[in-house]
Design a protein around this nucleic acid. Structure first.
Lengths: 328, 328
DNA sequence: TGCCACTATGACAACGTTGTCGCCCGGTGG
DNA sequence: CCACCGGGCGACAACGTTGTCATAGTGGCA
């Protein structure tokens, strides 16, 4: 900036005025300064600017499990849209379902003085965020709640959705329904399991623990669960996949099975409608999840002082075929 | 920091020493400072630190067309992995295939003094980056080349892959092959079209422009193209989808068709193997693309002074069924 | 003519850090 | 006893900006 000032024959303050479109600069001077800026390829240092002004940095942090997972990338996109509309940029990070990594990312974002943080928590302990929140960094949890602190949260109706899935299958005559999901350490999986039990109760189906398989979904783990739960005389006639990852592995495991169970997947996913049979899903609007959380965050950034809110977004069953077959 | 210093009864420089693990601090003093830091919830301001040290900011920028597109989110993930291994964080942005937006994002990243930029360009003019690059911000283009400047670039073999797709279909007896792709303004689409023509030539198939439909893929545009190209007496017996978006729309448009053409998709996509018939694709390793670009970027960040490199990654055909049917 | 208002500009401090340098003190060797 | 050394610490400047205030010049008006 001082180079520009020297070249234009003005003080550095005048350069500052020009780059900030402040009035009270003579047009001729402004032009000379612009020319110098152009010639030197000057671009103002936003870091220094933010430091001096003590204002917001114009960035927010987003922590998800895996930015490469279509579910989270759609979330990312929705968040980015809102952030852009508020003139902010997004720092993203993948926690990889590791609470240490989550913490590391969150604290680094705080050190960068992001204006706020959106977080799909991996861990259950968030006391580490208390000082940061008290220091004025708003935090909104999405898809899963905070572990041990009170904070803004946006969730989907995991419980209701899974009850609906069970009821749907029961309506089509199924009494032996298997439930495959991610590790119960993950809030959404635990909640959906709760919905599964409740759904069984409501439909007069005895809850059978041996039809439940939970754990980090891999092709192998899901394949093994399929062999265990869906074969033999006591085999389940229907299966609920607890999230989109499980569903994909499940579909692959079932691809070459002689007879396939009825199936409902929690989470919609691309091409579900084009499979044979098309997959019935409990769909929720991932974009809406991201938007709601981001809008809540920006309300906080702009000083909304109301008590922490908890928003639960609705889900709905999309019947496509895989869930509407009778037990064999 | 001065609050911490006051509370601990030391100078602010000593606090700085403690947070930086500098030697020459008495253990007792360090402990007092740590306690004060804990009590006040102090976290050092990375912006101020970077300003003072004049060092790198520990961030890189990534500009893609749409962070929500599975292709780009996988890229994002690969880039993030490398960035993490170099201790950097990633600022992401979606250009939405708009060159003004691309430029805006890139320049804002520069204003934030990112250590480097990875960009899937939307536009063809990149002169605006020259001052930034000269000022020391390395830029690596990926998936598509820079428009009018010389810069590091990592691409995939669009030409060879499409030739391979045509050859594969020709080998199965097809002579009337349709080509559906994104707008020819997009490098990859143009290049794949070139491969399509070259593939026709090499296989002794007359290139028929009326079998080519290009443009931003929407369900409607692809549906219309399908009606035009794949029906009637002169209908194509096979079709090549120019990218994953086109492929998905194409599959949906074909879902209820009475007889379906043979099909090959450029870009692999999730569940392609589970469709009926499974979709034959020209696959390339998106993760490798992201890794190669990010590694090249960090080599530049660390001062690699060699001439700009151009890397072309190989692609390979994965035969799954949809491309191995004879013309009807 | 004298004064005021206003425009255009610059000097300087400050944002929160860290690099440089120098000071004080206790111990060590001559 | 003194010179010297090194450990521990603080004062100060500087990074690149911008807010505050001061100043010089200009034109208008009584």
């Amino acid at each position: 900036m001082s180079d520009v000032a020297r070249l234009a024959g003005v003080s550095i303050k005048t350069v500052s005025r020009v780059v900030n479109d402040e009035p009270a600069v003579h047009p001729d001077t402004a032009e000379r300064v612009m020319a110098a800026i152009e010639q030197l390829g000057f671009r103002r240092n936003l870091g220094a600017r933010n430091l001096r002004r003590g204002s917001t940095t114009g960035t927010i942090g987003l922590i998800v499990e895996d930015v490469g997972n279509p579910f989270y990338s759609e979330l990312n996109r929705a968040v980015e849209r809102i952030a852009t509309s508020f003139g902010r940029q997004v720092l993203t990070g993948s926690s990889e379902e590791n609470s240490d990594r989550e913490r590391e990312l969150a604290l680094e974002f705080c050190a960068r003085r992001v204006d706020g943080i959106l977080i799909v928590p991996a861990g259950m302990q968030h006391g580490y965020l208390v000082p940061e929140m008290r220091a004025g960094t708003p935090v909104v949890f999405l898809d899963r709640p905070a572990g041990d602190i009170v904070a803004d949260t946006v969730l989907v109706d995991n419980l209701g959705g899974t009850i609906e899935a069970v009821t749907h299958l029961a309506k089509h005559g199924h009494r032996r329904i298997a439930f495959l999901a991610d590790s119960p350490d993950i809030f959404t999986a635990a909640e959906r399991l709760r919905g599964f039990r409740e759904g069984c109760v409501r439909n007069g189906i005895p809850y059978d623990e041996s039809l439940v398989a939970m754990g980090t979904p891999t092709p192998e783990s899901v394949g093994e669960a399929v062999r265990g739960l869906l074969t033999g005389p006591a085999a389940a006639t229907a299966v609920i996949a607890g999230n989109n990852r499980v569903a994909v592995h499940l579909l692959r495991a079932l691809a070459h099975a002689e007879h396939r169970p009825a199936m409902v997947s929690f989470d919609d996913f691309e091409l579900a409608d084009l499979l044979d049979p098309p997959v019935t899903v409990i769909a929720h609007d991932v974009g809406a999840l991201g938007r709601a959380a981001a809008e809540l965050l920006f309300a906080r950034v702009q000083g909304d002082p109301t008590a922490p809110r908890k928003v639960v977004l609705p889900v709905h069953l999309v019947a496509r075929g895989s869930g509407e077959v009778a037990p064999t």
